Simulated assay, not measured.
Amino acid sequence: MKVYNYTSSEQEIIDTYDKENHNFWTDKVKELTSLRLNLRAHYLVEQKNRCCYCKMLKQEKHGSTWDVEHIVPKSPFPRFLFEQNNLSLCCKECNDAKSDKSVFIDSNYDYKNYPLDNKKYSIIHPHLDKYSDHMIIRMSPDGKIMHIPQSDKGKVVFYHCDLVRFTMQFFNVEDLDLNLLITYSSFIDTVPNLTHETAKAFFTASLPRVLPAEYIDC
């Protein structure tokens, strides 16, 4: 994923930041409006309208859906507020859940320079890691998704970003399988000459599928 390159006017504003007071991000809302919009537009394209943590596809482009994400949280590491590799885009739900949680393996180390070694991070880093190496996503026929961690990084993202909320939605009704069987049985009744292989193909197509890596690696 390509980082966003600041314009000269944006860089002038950034150069006034003391790298200590992270509230600069909210205090300078008017001055940073253009930068926020440009960051959102850039990462919507780079991430294909998917949150960097849950990979939920959202077609909206406004700020009430998306947050510019500081991967290393602003509060404990204000010096990384405008570090290009520290910025991405995530949904409001993931951002609220992640909040200021630690993203480093050594949460007590005070990094002076932004680490570009992915081994330093406890989470799936949007710029430094391949998402599909750490997480599998299954999608049900009705579009619900469920995350299955494949590594320690995947587990941390799962808990940091409260991805269990998707699992709960995925299994929202206890009679999901019953509904599926009823629907399938009704379909079989309407096609009396259906062959075994065709019936099997239709049934398989109705089951949750694993999303391909190209869907989530962005």
Results as ranks from 00 to 15, higher is better:
Arg36Cys: 04
Leu44Pro: 15
Gln59His: 11
Leu178Lys: 15
Asp27Ala: 02
Lys74Ala: 11
Asp27Val: 04
Tyr17Asn: 09
Pro126Ala: 01
Phe171Ile: 11
Ala201Gly: 13
Phe104Met: 09
Ser140Asp: 08
Phe203Tyr: 12
Ala205Ile: 07
Tyr109Ser: 10
Val157Cys: 03
Ser64Pro: 08
Phe82Asn: 02
Lys119His: 11
Leu35Lys: 01
Pro149Asp: 01
Leu163Gly: 02
Gln84Met: 10
Leu211Glu: 07
Thr7Cys: 13
Thr204Phe: 10
Asp175His: 09
His62Cys: 11
Asn86Glu: 00
Leu176Gly: 03
Met146Asn: 13
His160Pro: 01
Cys90Val: 01
Leu35Val: 03
Tyr111Lys: 14
Val29Gly: 04
Val173Cys: 04
Arg138Val: 04
Asn113Gly: 08
Asn179Leu: 14
Val191Asp: 04
Ala41His: 15
Ile105Asp: 12
Glu46His: 00
Lys119Phe: 10
Lys48Met: 06
Lys92Ile: 05
Pro126Gly: 06
Ser75Phe: 08
Thr7Asn: 09
Leu35Cys: 04
Asn5Lys: 12
Phe166Trp: 14
Gln11Met: 02
Thr183Lys: 11
Glu12Thr: 15
Phe80Tyr: 06
Asp27Glu: 15
Phe170Gln: 06
Met139Ile: 10
Tyr184Trp: 14
Glu83Gln: 15
Ser64Ile: 15
Thr16Ala: 07
Gln47Ile: 00
His127Ser: 07
Lys120Glu: 13
Val68Gln: 08
Thr183Glu: 04
Met139Pro: 01
Ile188Leu: 14
Asp96Cys: 03
Gly63Phe: 15
Tyr109Met: 08
Met1Gln: 07
Pro141Gly: 11
Ser132Val: 07
Val29Cys: 01
Cys94Met: 03
Leu81Glu: 03
Trp25Thr: 01
Glu214Ser: 03
Ser185Asn: 10
Val103Ser: 04
Thr183Val: 07
Glu46Leu: 00
Ile105Trp: 05
Pro76Arg: 01
Gln59Cys: 00
Val210Asp: 08
Tyr43Glu: 05
Glu174Tyr: 13
Asp110Ala: 09
Asn108Trp: 12
Phe202Glu: 15
Asn38Cys: 04
Leu39Val: 09
Leu89Met: 05
Glu93Cys: 02
Ser88Asn: 06
Arg40Thr: 05
Glu20Thr: 12
Phe104Ile: 13
Phe187His: 12
Leu87Gly: 01
Lys28Asp: 00
Thr65Trp: 11
Thr16Arg: 09
Ser9Thr: 09
Ser206Met: 15
His127Ala: 02
Asp129Thr: 13
Phe170Asp: 02
Asn23Trp: 06
Asp189Cys: 03
Gln84Val: 11
